[in-house]
Computed example of a mutant assay.
Amino acid sequence: MGSFLDIQDDPNEVSGTAAILRSMGTSFQSEAQGILGEINAVNGERPWGNDSYGQAFEQTYNVVPEGSEVPLREAVEEGLGRAGEGLIKPADKTVLAMTEYQGVDIENRNKINQANV
């Protein structure tokens, strides 16, 4: 436990939990990349056909929806491409924060001990 910041758990435990979260994010990211690969493979085959229904689908699939900046197809690709980041980035930042916290806490403890001498 730190002297100046109230961390309820051991910073190493917090970092351990963050590592688990990162692992989950990485696994989720890997699964999403697999799904994206499957979608791209299917898209390459254009399974919706060339009849009027297929053309209508393809047009909708490639049109930029109102309020968006990219077509639905690209939005799906971007979303799957970023899948996992919401878990990985906070986990990495948590580990970094705990590492910095521990370093600063040790440094402050040493300065206090020197001042008390």
Results as ranks from 00 to 15, higher is better:
65 P>D: 10
22 R>F: 03
58 E>T: 04
35 I>T: 11
49 G>Y: 13
36 L>D: 06
89 K>R: 13
110 N>G: 01
79 G>M: 07
30 S>H: 09
14 V>N: 04
78 E>K: 12
100 E>F: 03
89 K>G: 04
20 I>E: 09
100 E>C: 02
23 S>C: 05
92 D>E: 15
65 P>E: 12
12 N>K: 11
8 Q>C: 02
109 R>D: 04
113 N>H: 05
115 A>H: 07
89 K>I: 15
24 M>T: 11
19 A>V: 06
109 R>L: 07
31 E>M: 13
9 D>F: 06
77 E>H: 11
72 L>N: 04
86 G>L: 03
33 Q>A: 10
93 K>T: 06
11 P>Y: 00
37 G>Q: 14
60 T>G: 15
48 W>A: 05
58 E>P: 00
4 F>R: 14
49 G>R: 13
43 N>R: 13
29 Q>W: 00
87 L>S: 04
36 L>W: 01
116 N>P: 00
13 E>K: 06
17 T>W: 03
30 S>V: 01
23 S>L: 06
6 D>C: 00
116 N>K: 12
106 I>Q: 14
79 G>S: 10
66 E>D: 12
64 V>C: 07
68 S>M: 11
45 E>K: 15
62 N>S: 10
47 P>A: 12
77 E>T: 06
76 V>N: 09
27 S>D: 14
28 F>Q: 08
88 I>Y: 02
89 K>W: 08
23 S>A: 14
28 F>S: 09
105 D>F: 04
5 L>H: 04
95 V>S: 03
38 E>Y: 05
61 Y>S: 01
114 Q>E: 15
29 Q>I: 03
34 G>L: 05
28 F>V: 11
107 E>A: 15
30 S>R: 11
25 G>Y: 07
33 Q>N: 08
81 G>P: 12
25 G>K: 09
84 G>I: 08
101 Y>I: 01
92 D>G: 06
68 S>W: 06
58 E>I: 00
58 E>A: 08
3 S>W: 07
101 Y>H: 15
47 P>H: 10
1 M>A: 14
7 I>A: 04
91 A>K: 01
2 G>C: 13
65 P>R: 10
77 E>C: 05
27 S>A: 14
34 G>Q: 08
117 V>D: 13
27 S>P: 02
31 E>L: 11
15 S>V: 00
78 E>I: 13
19 A>F: 03
1 M>L: 13
94 T>C: 13
51 D>M: 11
12 N>G: 03
28 F>A: 15
46 R>F: 02
28 F>I: 13
91 A>Q: 09
5 L>N: 02
113 N>Y: 03
37 G>T: 07
66 E>W: 05
21 L>V: 15
77 E>G: 01
110 N>C: 02
39 I>P: 02
